[in-house]
């Protein structure tokens, strides 16, 4: 393809950049205050889980 004009293309790129043409991908995130809302629940769940058959299965895995 024929050579493009660098300055012109750079200018076009800059305009697109400032217009938001290049969308930024950001994490879609669900907020949670884990320490306050879920950590105690999880610690109790781990303790309760050690009484289950699946825990015994994990224990026997090789």
């Amino acid at each position: 393809m024929p050579r493009v004009n660098v300055q012109e293309e750079t200018k076009i790129f800059g305009e697109k950049l400032r217009s938001g043409y290049f969308a930024q991908e950001r994490s879609k995130n669900t907020e949670v205050n884990y320490a306050q809302e879920k950590e105690l629940r999880d610690t109790e769940a781990v303790k309760a889980y050690t009484q289950t058959e699946l825990f015994e299965y994990i224990k026997e895995m090789r």
Binding site: K38, R41, D42, A45, V46, A48, Y49, T52, E53, L54, Y57, I58
Partner: peptide
Amino acid sequence: IPKMFAEMGIDLKAE
């Protein structure tokens, strides 16, 4: 595993 179960409300005894 128990944390994942707890988050989904799955019975810890489920298998």
